[in-house]
Amino acid sequence: MADLVGARRRSAAPRRLTVPAEGVLRRIAAFLAAFGAGVAAYIAIAEADGGAPACLAGSGGCETVAASSHSELAGISVALIGVFGYALLLVTALLRGDGARMAGFGLGLVGFGYTVYLTYLELFVIDAICQWCIVSAVLMVALFAVNAVRMLRYVGTPA
């Protein structure tokens, strides 16, 4: 009986979510950003001169997406813009302080928002899926989540 009451007390106590130390979050963000920069760089190089990254199983989706005008923004390759964005996210992961925390969150949010838009285009406008773009999208969503946790938990705390 005493054990049961004790168990009830334990389960009624509010659970505290354990947030990793900021150093761990920064390392995860740095890894994701570096990986993302590599993926975006591969897509940018493959698309140079009108080519396309190699889709697995020869699905042809990568060629279709690369051929779409949505693969460029104001004449600049979206993949190249992605390399730049991931590089900036890498810098925010390497720096300390509130400025870096907020910049990482802001850049992650921009990347997340534009990734949602690009995925919508693939599914409903271009009507093709590029596997490399999906990999990049997953990385960007993860980067946004890590940077959001870093911002929410550590802004206002000593660097």
Binding site: M102, F105, G106, L109, V110, G113, Y117, M151, L152, V155
Partner: peptide, 21 residues
Amino acid sequence: RLVKLASATVFLAAVAVAVLI
């Protein structure tokens, strides 16, 4: 401080995404 900074950042990010689209 968190609310102020986060609000401003979310606003700027939303504007940036809208401009890109």
